[in-house]
Structure formats: structure tokens, C-alpha cells
Amino acid sequence: MSYSEILSFVQFIHYFTIIIFLTFNITNVLSIYEVGVDYHAFGTNFTETAFLTQYHISNVRSIVLVQLQGIADRGANFVTLDIWFGSEPGKITDEHWLATFPMSAQETTNLNQYAADVASIQSKIDDHRLHLNIALFWLGIADYKIGNLTEGFGSDYLNASEFTARIEKTTDCIITAISNIRCSDGTLLVQTVYLEAEVMIGAKPNQDWFISTHYPRFLNQITVAGFTPAIYFLVDAREEYILDKDYIDPQYPALNGHRCMYWVYRSLNFLKIHQLPFPKRIDFSCYIDRNTSTYANLTYHILNDADAALSVLDAPKSYGIAETYYFIDDTQRKEFGQAFALEALSNPRLSHIRFWTTPDAGGKGIHIAYPFAIEDFLPPLKKISIN
């Protein structure tokens, strides 16, 4: 064999090895990167079509079942049910988006039925099944941001012990509703339950009290039941903040040059000070508002900032996008969704994304409802496999 033939053979082996490595890496990423929907309403009018409180109505359930099937068929791995608590027990209201605080028997039954329905869905394209996450929100009489320890909390100013008792009862009702729902392989349908969304310690009144008081029991009860307990955070994703390399934080040097992590760092630092465990994956809302940069560049910078700043706290370099835009413009939405998908292909630190729907998923006043172009958020190879 001549020298040129040997060189060609060596080059062939080198490139073949690279191809095998990339194929393995991409296949591995495709198996762990999951795309889903914040799905809590069957129409754009959020107040009328939020479905949990109405799920015992046969027509509502029928609509949701059709939409769940479509969501699975277009490639989603999961749906996240967002529940807003805040209505007074026994109150008759047409505010269907607002659940009772504490959770009522009917709402508990509805959640059980909805979870069973999600478990029954199987994609007609590739036979995969959905899993379910649940995120809890607190408004109205459950709005801890109203009041204080002296006056009470929420719009009805419940005393602290009563407020906490209702949080605990609501948590227990959720566990009761979902604990017996399993996938076809025997695993629990629900993976993650979030106690609180967009945690921003220092920005939201009483949030430090809410987390330090209620998160420990929530962690224990949700874990014992077999689910993953979590909270999620908020990235300040304005382009001028993401690219502000000269930023100097007045309190934490770890944030210098990493301004978009301002609230995430402070919130995780609060957990660390209070000896509360970090979530296994750091999830955060990420509504990127760009001017001239690309979404891919901004996404890359956000995750690099997370790596650099949060590692000082020993946080895991594992991330999920808990909420983000769903733009109505097809071109913009695809560019946006692919920025996350391609980032996940290049670095497995990003393993989870779900986009918001209604209200305001496309920007203020732009409400989104089924059907969803889930494929715009899927990695390219995965899209080929489901089409």
C-alpha cells in the first residue's frame, strides 16, 4: 500500500470516527431533550377556556382529548398543566381559570381524570406517549404577595396558619389526584410538580416567607409520593442585559458580566442560605427580547451566563426553559425555537423546553391556543422522524 493510500485510509478512519461520535451525541441529545406545551386552556380566551375547573363537563373533556392527541402527534413529549389557585371555597363564579383555595373535591377529581386522559394518549405517528408536569400559581385569596405576617395574606387576609394549612391541603389534594396514574410502562405519569413559578427573591413581596415556610414540606411530600419537586426562576432576557459584558453587580461579584442572571442567582443564593436544596435542574422563564442579535447568539449567552454565575453557588449545570414565547409569525417562531433546539444539540446542558400559550404567549395581548407548531421547537433530526 502506497503512502497516499495509507494517508487516505487514515483520513477515512478519522472522519468515520467523527461521524460515529456525532451520530451518538445527536442520538443521545434527542433522547434527553424534551419539548412540551404549557397547556391549560382549550381556546385563546383564557378566563373562559381554562379547563381544569370545567373538566367534569363532557364537552370540555372531549375538546381537550382531541387537542392532546394533536399535541402528541406533532411531536410534544409532555404537557404542563398550570393551575391558578385563588377562589374562595363554595363561591359560584364564571372565572373558570381560577381554582379554589384550597383545592376542592371536584377539582381533585377533575385533575385525576385529566391525568388519566393524558396517560391514555399515544402518538399516531411514532407511538410515543406524553408525560405530565404541574405548576402551581397563587392569586386572589391565595396571593401571598398581598399582606404580611401581621395583617394576614391574600385578598381575604387569611392569617398565616390558615394560609399555610390551605397550601398544605392543596398539595395533598394534588398528590391524591395524581398518585395512582401511571404510564403504560408502569412509571408515574407526572414527573415534576412546581410549587412556585418565576421565583425572584427580593422582587416579590413575601416570597421569601412563602418559600422558606412552604417549600420544605412540599419537597418532602412530593418526593415521598414519587414525583420531582421544584420551583422555577426568571431570566431577565432583554438583549441589552444579556450582552452587557461590563455589568458590575452591587452585591454579588459572581454576577459581574452576567446581568441576565440577576434574579436567578439571588433566588438560588436564598435557597442556599436557608439550606434548602436546589432543584435537580435549574428551570427558568426565558422570554428573549432582541434588537439586532440572533436568537441563537442570545440563547448561547444566557446559558453561558448561567454556567459562569450559578456554578459559584454549586448549582447544577442543567437547565430547562419553563416558559417562553410562541410567536404568531411562522418565520420568527421557527428561528426562535431552533435557537434552543440547536443549542441542545451542541450542549446537553439544555434538556427541557416548553412554550407558553395563553395569555400573552406571542407578546402582550397576543393569546395562543391549539393547534401548535411544536415541530418549530424540535431538533431537526427529530422532526424528520415524526413527519
Rank of each mutant, 00 (worst) to 15 (best):
W97K: 12
V312Y: 12
A177F: 02
I57F: 06
S267H: 14
L195R: 06
Y114V: 02
A165Q: 04
N347I: 03
T164Y: 02
I366E: 14
G320R: 05
A177H: 04
P216D: 10
E162I: 15
R61A: 15
F340M: 08
D330N: 15
L22C: 04
Y247L: 11
I386T: 08
L149V: 09
P279Q: 10
L298G: 04
R290D: 05
F270G: 00
L98K: 13
V64D: 02
Y15V: 01
D236F: 13
W263H: 13
K169S: 04
Y241H: 09
T23H: 10
L68H: 11
R166D: 00
G154C: 01
F78R: 02
A369S: 14
V118S: 08
D330H: 15
E343T: 15
P380K: 08
A344R: 06
F51T: 01
T294Q: 03
R74W: 00
T171M: 14
D246G: 15
A322I: 14
V199A: 07
T292K: 12
H131S: 13
N25D: 08
A237T: 03
N25I: 09
N110I: 11
D38L: 06
Q275Y: 10
Y319D: 05
I20R: 14
Q122S: 11
G365A: 12
L268A: 10
F163L: 11
A369L: 01
F9I: 10
G365T: 13
I167F: 05
F340Q: 10
T53C: 11
V37C: 06
L188W: 08
H352K: 15
I181F: 02
K364A: 12
D329I: 05
I92F: 09
D360S: 08
I13P: 00
Q69L: 09
F340Y: 12
K383A: 03
K124L: 06
L381D: 01
S8M: 07
W138V: 13
N291H: 08
A344G: 08
D143W: 02
C260K: 03
H352G: 12
H274T: 04
E34D: 14
I134W: 07
T213V: 12
F16R: 09
F218K: 08
